Amino acid sequence: MPSAQSSKDNLLERVFAYRAFDLRDRFPQPLETFRQALECLQSDDAYLPDMSGEIVAYLRDGRALHIPEHFFIRHSGNSSAVISPKENDQVCEAVYAWLLDKLSQDSNDSLDASTVRPARLNILLDQCDPNAPEPDDIQAWQQMRDVGREIIDSPSREDIWEEAVQLMGEAKARRWMKAAHSQLDGKTPNLSIEEDLARVYELVSQMRTGTR
């Protein structure tokens, strides 16, 4: 008869990778553990992780689970901060307990992994092999230079964030970036930025002009 520990291990094996997201997507690599993803957000490389930080667990069946931010971001009034490394052991234990609960119940909280940044799941799968070369189209995209009016007119993630902060203040802007929106097909601005950055910027602009 399998032990309780082996049953837990089998459930957690359904997670094949984790990813950490900050405002500038500085951590594109898939990670083996939640702790590694957390340490990315705690690193000096992270950009505004307290405002836009997310950690996603990707499942082998093509789904994904967003780890609730309350595990790794602390809020106090209008301020927020990523937890300190000295809390990592406790937080990792709590997150794995949460994952076990979700996986054992076959939770409806999971999403189609192809709708979570990055949009193409096959890229993530390829990157799980550290020796796998990047796809040709990704290499071409990375080497592409901006041309013409794209340099002037294309909004950036920072443009969207700054516009939202001016309209709502930092605390409300952070919540807005992580809340599902009907005009974004039920997705959050954080997720929609990857697929259609201009559409998210347009939505923020409409809020400013009151034309929503």
Rank of each mutant, 00 (worst) to 15 (best):
A164F: 10
V165I: 09
Q166W: 03
Q166E: 02
Q166I: 00
L167G: 01
M168F: 12
M168R: 11
M168L: 11
M168N: 03
G169N: 06
E170P: 12
A171I: 09
A171E: 08
K172P: 03
K172R: 15
A173T: 05
A173D: 03
R174F: 14
R174H: 14
R175M: 12
R175P: 06
W176Y: 00
W176G: 00
W176Q: 00
M177Q: 01
M177I: 00
M177S: 01
M177W: 01
A179N: 05
A180R: 15
A180Q: 15
H181T: 04
S182E: 10
S182T: 07
Q183D: 05
D185T: 11
D185S: 15
G186K: 14
G186M: 14
G186Y: 14
G186Q: 11
G186V: 10
G186R: 13
K187L: 14
K187I: 10
K187V: 10
T188R: 14
P189Q: 09
N190Y: 06
N190C: 03
N190F: 11
N190Q: 04
L191D: 06
L191H: 12
L191E: 06
S192G: 06
I193F: 11
I193G: 04
E194N: 06
E194C: 04
E195N: 10
D196T: 06
D196Y: 13
D196R: 12
L197H: 05
L197T: 03
A198M: 08
R199Q: 08
R199V: 03
Y201F: 12
Y201S: 09
Y201A: 14
E202C: 02
E202H: 04
E202L: 03
L203F: 04
L203I: 02
V204F: 01
V204I: 04
V204W: 01
Q206Y: 04
M207I: 01
M207Q: 00
M207C: 02
M207P: 00
